[in-house]
Computed example of a mutant assay.
Amino acid sequence: MIHTRETTSNLTYPLRFEPSDILLDHTSLIPRLRGMSGTYEERIAIIGSGPVGLNAANILTQLGYSHVTLFEARSEVGGMLNVPTPSFGFPLQASKHLIDLLLRPNIEVRLRVKVENEQAFVAIVENYDAVLLAIGAQRSMHGKIRGENALKGVLSAHDVICGEGTEVPKRALQGNVVIIGGGRMTFDAAFMALEAGACVVHILFPSSLENLSLQAWKRVSSLRKGALQLHPFTMPTSILGTEEMDVCGVRCRQTRWASSPEEGRLSFVPGRGCLFTADAVVVAIDEIPDISFLPPTLIISGSYGPELHLLEACMTSLPNVFAAGDVVANMISLHEALVQGREAANRIHAYLRQKTKAQF
């Protein structure tokens, strides 16, 4: 049974087309193959059941694999498809149709199964002929801002949008809300704040507005005219609090490129800066996957911390372990996620067929 999250709010982002119209744009990425059911007996495990993992599982079963298992840490499949936010531009009704289309009856789904450590991961690798890492970005990066970790009312974008069992109450996002950063979930967090009843939402962005998702901005800004305010080349120097350690404001200064945009080095412009009153602060710098359960052989040191070691597209240093989606690079659209799922499925199929051929 597929469980989808319902929203009780009457406020929905303005999409004027029917679910069938939206699905039409994506069905080319979900091929229908005939006459191959049950052809292959190899066992395939997919860790993560967002659109990447779902499409990979769908295509692998159509290619003839009768033992495809999805491992999902949450209580429902679908990942970001179950979140009522504008990042993918997909209303929940269309998402439900898409999940039904992807989740074929012969795919085994194991819900509430989190691969927590290296031992659990190794056990899966040893029991399956191929493993696909399709986990999402489960953690928000810290902004390393004074007051961020000490004050009540400082929230991560991931907890605001995707928290399961620890959902952020709507009252925490009312009044004046400041969102820091221009990560993928920036406008999703703004959407949630406006839906919760925020008076005004300020987005502090370190660079120019051209680097933000214009499509997502249009959807969110149309919810309530004038309630969403963008502040490019502006970032906080500190988050201010009351004697009771509650957030009360954000002190900011203008930013500029210290070298070139390509090198990505920003610095603060000398000056007094400005101050925003805040009842809540959401940190949306960027989202990263939690890969702490992987063995050291699969991890390298990257610019922002540990990263998955890839030899080439979708292929890790272990021959039977593949990767796609946010664990490789943040997916910015549903189309990109479905394409990654399709490519991963084809890579796994080629690997297993070549391995079988080499045995004879």
Rank of each mutant, 00 (worst) to 15 (best):
E210M: 09
M1P: 14
L214R: 14
S207G: 14
A157H: 01
A190Y: 10
L98C: 11
F268E: 06
S75E: 15
L298Q: 13
K144W: 08
I30Q: 10
M1I: 15
Q174P: 01
A198K: 04
M235H: 10
N176D: 11
E307W: 04
A57W: 03
G183C: 07
L70G: 02
T316R: 00
F205E: 10
F191A: 13
A134C: 05
G181R: 07
V52Y: 03
D290R: 06
H26T: 05
P270R: 01
R251Y: 04
T8Q: 07
S140P: 01
G271E: 04
E148P: 01
K225D: 12
T234L: 12
E263N: 15
F90E: 13
A56L: 09
R110V: 08
A57E: 05
I348F: 01
K144A: 15
V154M: 05
L60M: 08
P289R: 04
A329T: 09
P232D: 09
C248G: 00
P319N: 11
P206C: 02
T39M: 08
L352H: 03
M331P: 11
L29D: 10
S317A: 15
P105R: 07
P206I: 02
G325E: 12
E210C: 11
G163F: 02
Q138K: 07
L23T: 04
I239Y: 00
R139L: 13
V109P: 07
S259Q: 15
